[in-house]
Design a binder for these strands. Structure first.
Lengths: 226, 226
DNA sequence: CAAATAACTGTCCAAGTGGCCAGCTTTTCA
DNA sequence: TGAAAAGCTGGCCACTTGGACAGTTATTTG
């Protein structure tokens, strides 16, 4: 988990003596959603609390009532994104079938890009800008995560159940190619002359990526198996 | 070419009667480089002209002498990036060998990510934020570019010289996977525990991407041919 | 009910922001 | 050499920024 910023938890009531009510819950969700949109559109520095408040339909001071600083609000959102991903990607083991496992990973990642495009974008912006709030997360949790998956793939390769490829690169490839449809949706949709993604398009994308990447790794994509 | 912003060309002298000198040339390059860095780090809204001037070692008013507005400066940089790419990617034709052509494309794109990472990042930020300055470019030049390449691939596929894959998706896949090493360098390098890319690493990346993507498209990567 | 706490917000402030301008110095070139 | 143009910049302005705070209202709970 990344630094929460001056240990201030907006889900808790000021003193904690009376319980946090539905009002708090609603407003928090509202502000977080508005802020996510604003941060994606203008970055951390470029986003203004006034604009976030306007989006949420609240006075500016109300935003400051729930989040003691702009930084605190931003870090809270980043934390939610990390949590979302940690919850989403379960473990793969040596005993799994390589093709099934990679296919499932690709499809989950595509689905996530489709269901949470703003989370993907905000994460991307943060990384492009040098990941000032995420470097520790990369160095610890994420590096561990990648190495564990890479090791499983190494063993598949050693057993001849998968082609000889660099497992870390495979993870980056899956990461980048799936991410792209969320982060660059404006470019993708404009070039394909569409207004927004539709369900069949999302499945086509997943099928395509699974086909090319798995074949490229010497595997047979499950959805093409006889 | 995208909108230049109130038709103001910073490479031209105020009246055009005396010729533009080396001073102008140097300062322009200086400011553009400083601005590129600043825009990548903080986005358009978050970047400040004062900070750009500080990076370039000039007074703020001097930046405004060369670029009449922040927007003008930003659009100039985006235009330079587009020009860089247009100059870089020449045409592929039906007569080319599919494997050679795609391999060359991947390698050129990886090289560009390595030589101009900031250009790649700034472009990415702009697209993620909804591409307010690039939508026209996508709709016209870039869409044409993609369709032309896709058509060439279609003919390769029809002739059985390449596997049955969606050519537009192939272009997106190459685009995203190569781009990733520039845009997400912080994440990639931190996870791989490196300080910066080295030449052998760049070649490994190109080899890997060429291997997986070409194989995935039913082709044999040139560097693996006997 | 009433006391306690949560929830809310108008107002203020110092520190920036982009951009303009008038006047200055330096360079160019006939 | 001298006039014209390029190059430069300190100071200014109206406006926005994040955030603090005091005072108010609404809700909770004994």
């Amino acid at each position: 988990m990344i630094d929460k910023g001056q240990d201030f938890d907006p889900t808790e009531t000021p003193t904690g003596k009376y319980k946090a009510g539905k009002i708090r819950e609603d407003n928090l969700a509202n502000i977080l959603s508005a802020a996510e949109e604003e941060f994606v559109q203008h970055g951390f520095r470029g986003a203004s609390i006034q604009a976030i408040a306007d989006r949420a339909g609240l006075p500016k001071a109300n935003v400051h009532y729930y989040f003691k600083s702009k930084s605190n609000l931003y870090v809270t959102i980043l934390n939610n994104i990390i949590t979302l991903w940690n919850d989403f990607f379960d473990t793969i083991t040596e005993d799994d079938d390589p093709a099934e496992a990679l296919d499932a990973f690709i499809r989950k990642k595509v689905a996530l890009s489709y269901s949470h495009p703003r989370a993907s974008k905000l994460f991307a912006m943060e990384v492009i800008q040098g990941a000032p709030h995420l470097k520790d997360y990369f160095r610890s949790d994420m590096r561990t995560w990648v190495r564990a998956r890479a090791q499983v793939m190494e063993s598949w390769i050693a057993q001849g159940r998968m082609g000889k490829v660099d497992p870390v690169q495979v993870i980056f490839l899956i990461w980048s190619s799936t991410q792209h449809y969320a982060d660059f949706d404006t470019q993708v949709l404009t070039i394909m002359n569409r207004a927004e993604y539709e369900h069949d398009m999302v499945e086509n994308i997943a099928n395509f990526l699974s086909q090319v990447i798995l074949t490229g790794c010497g595997l047979t994509p499950p959805h093409l198996k006889g």
